[in-house]
């Protein structure tokens, strides 16, 4: 299979799955933006209405972090089960196993494009104006995507190897939701703690970068972004190599699971 065949197949699988998914729901494509908005609503009710958060423009702050986080967490959870969920195909054709997680991630990417458009619309309505700094959103989104791919490829492999891993993956996403500054600002912490949170947790760094760019008009730390991006790229390439090398072992695990 050539690279272009692989890419076309991945994209076709993603698009067909989006179509099938939309036809299953009464609201169809509306769910692409409705679901992330409902997540935001839940956090808004808890933190703004019940806990009386004092942060200025909390809804916008929340949306910038949460919409990117939901992209990561949903893609990771769905991609991690994607190989196992395609038992029928895996048992019938010898294909690169990375196709399944990558097609699932591609599906999430299409949905996320709509979500980002919605976010931009809300920001404009709230009086935030795009500037040249917003150009930094592209590399930040690219690194965010690479991080999703890197985590998902290994997660998908581990879940095929020992099914029990999917429990850890759900737990890890919950842990990340609390530690990545989705509904709190790492910059409000003690400066030493801010430094550690943003340095050790790449997701916290990315969520903060989105906010810095769109809300403060400040460019993110380019060196840090490049390091996170390079590590994510290397891990993603390693994940592809592992899935390729163990393709038949994975098939056996999936068929006999």
């Amino acid at each position: 299979m050539t690279l272009s065949q692989y890419a076309t197949l991945m994209d076709t699988m993603a698009r067909l799955s989006l179509k099938a998914d939309a036809s299953r729901y009464f609201f169809g494509y509306v769910w692409w933006v409705l679901e992330p908005l409902l997540y935001v609503l839940v956090f808004y009710v808890v933190f703004e209405l019940i806990l009386q958060n004092r942060k200025e423009d909390f809804v916008v702050f929340l949306m910038c972090g949460q919409l990117a986080f939901v992209w990561f967490s949903k893609s990771l959870n769905q991609a991690s089960r994607s190989i196992l969920g395609s038992k029928g195909l895996v048992g019938r054709v010898d294909i690169p196993k990375s196709l399944f997680p990558l097609a699932t991630i591609q599906e999430g990417l299409y949905k996320q494009a709509a979500v980002f458009l919605l976010l931009f619309a809300v920001l404009l309505a709230k009086g935030y104006t795009p500037s040249l700094v917003w150009g930094w959103l592209l590399p930040v989104m690219l690194v965010n995507y690479l991080l999703i791919v890197a985590c998902s490829l290994f997660a998908a492999y581990l879940v095929c190897w020992v099914f029990d891993f999917h429990v850890f993956i759900s737990m890890a996403t919950i842990f990340l939701m609390f530690t990545s500054g989705v509904f709190w600002d790492p910059r409000d912490l003690d400066p030493a703690m801010t430094y550690w949170v943003l340095t050790l947790n790449p997701l916290a760094f990315l969520l903060d970068a989105y906010r810095q760019i769109m809300l403060e008009g400040v460019a993110p730390n380019a060196a840090h972004l490049a390091i996170v991006g390079s590590i994510a790229l290397l891990v993603a390439l390693a994940g592809l190599a592992v899935l390729r090398r163990h393709s038949r072992f994975i098939a056996l695990r999936v068929i006999t699971s």
Binding site: A20, L89, V93
Partner: peptide, 12 residues
């Protein structure tokens, strides 16, 4: 490999 029922994605 042609086999029965396998290999289909039910929602498609």
């Amino acid at each position: 490999l042609l086999s029965l029922g396998l290999g289909f994605q039910d929602s498609l």
